[in-house]
Design a protein around this nucleic acid. Structure first.
Lengths: 205, 205
DNA sequence: TAGATTGTTAATCGATTAACAATC
DNA sequence: TAGATTGTTAATCGATTAACAATC
């Protein structure tokens, strides 16, 4: 396993590792300080082999008996996640959901940053400036934006999606239940809140 | 494979099957009308064996040459999804995200329904009545609510979670990045928007 | 009968876990 | 050395796909 095939499952755990290493009093930070995968696993409620695999895929081998170098690990985690140099994304659709996401604080730890929001007519909501759709293309070109969050109605989804792609976006996180048809060089990920709820409802407990 | 082990992946496809069957002009609806898994697969962009497995797990065997009975399939899909008799859920936390979800229209097709929202202090937002947290327990007991969506800040997550469980909730869809610790008879599903974005960012295209 | 469509069994693939060998 | 901790290989598990047999 090497750094090029970090799975989504692993990626989801990386910020937890980083946060644990940075904040736990059980982890020391002097030069040469080390941390064991077992310690991390125990605190995060994960299997220790799993942690070991995640970490070694990311930061290279640990050392038997002593564990992983804390400082190397921090650097590698920050580097891979990109928390110091987050990727800019835009939001398209500034209704209630779009505005909520626009003001959401949890993105930085995952290496992304919402830099702008667009809607049919520009406006100003909760201190953040919303730009009109017409400005999206030039904004994205100028700022090299390739990722968009779409929070628009099911009805508008395909139409807006076409515009978004036209603006140079090639990765879309879509909150609509409609799966827009897109050219094959564009990637759409559906985030379906209702499905998560339904799965919960059906999960036997 | 039988109806008791419908996977989450399958569950996510069921509403799409139902919608296709109900709305596609390629599907007729008279008594004895049938539809083939291949037709569904082709239209939804899925493998036909996959569709066949999903459908037969849900509604029992199809018939070679003729396919699946449309009416049986519709009944089974509606029955399993529960769209005619949706499960009530509550929202806890009526900030921007909570309010957005409260007004979200996409739940019915997945067999769930948001029936109330709670926040520290009750209020009225966008025509929907928000109740104070103190009323949650009696409301849930009276209405038999066992599922909650938590849309509160990371800081408040554990505190509110305890209150939610106290109110009789045993399944929680949590938008916070904090994973609350809960008794083992309570199920928490994390829905992490930032992770979805990060995964998209790292997906090679 | 022939052909469309299904069901079944085995193969693949990815993620996780278990068992054990290696090493500092 | 002994023991803590790692890495590696094989097993498991779930979802999907491929190949093929069954049947109306």
């Amino acid at each position: 396993m090497n750094i090029n095939d970090i799975s989504r499952a692993t990626l989801g755990r990386l910020p937890r590792y980083l946060e644990f290493i940075e904040t736990s009093p059980e982890v020391s930070h002097g030069p040469g300080a080390r941390v064991s995968s077992s310690l991390i696993a125990r605190n995060l409620g994960l299997g220790e082999v799993l942690v070991r695999k995640d970490l070694s895929a990311l930061a290279g081998a640990g050392r038997p008996k002593t564990g992983f170098d804390v400082s190397d690990l921090e650097t590698a985690l920050r580097e891979y996640i990109g928390s110091d140099n987050p990727t800019p994304v835009i939001i398209v659709g500034a209704g209630r959901l779009g505005t909520a996401i626009l003001n959401y604080k949890g993105f930085t730890g995952f290496g992304v940053e919402v830099v702008a929001a667009f809607d049919r007519s520009g406006s100003k909501k909760n201190d953040r400036h919303i730009m009109p759709l017409e400005d999206m293309r030039s904004y994205c070109e100028k700022n090299g934006i390739r990722i968009a969050i779409m929070a628009v109605s099911d009805d508008a989804c395909q139409t807006i999606c076409d515009i978004v792609i036209e603006a140079g976006i090639n990765k879309i996180l879509n909150f609509s239940q409609v799966r827009p048809s897109v050219p094959e060089n564009v990637l759409v990920e559906q985030l379906n809140i209702a499905l998560s709820l339904a799965a919960l409802k059906h999960s036997g407990i």
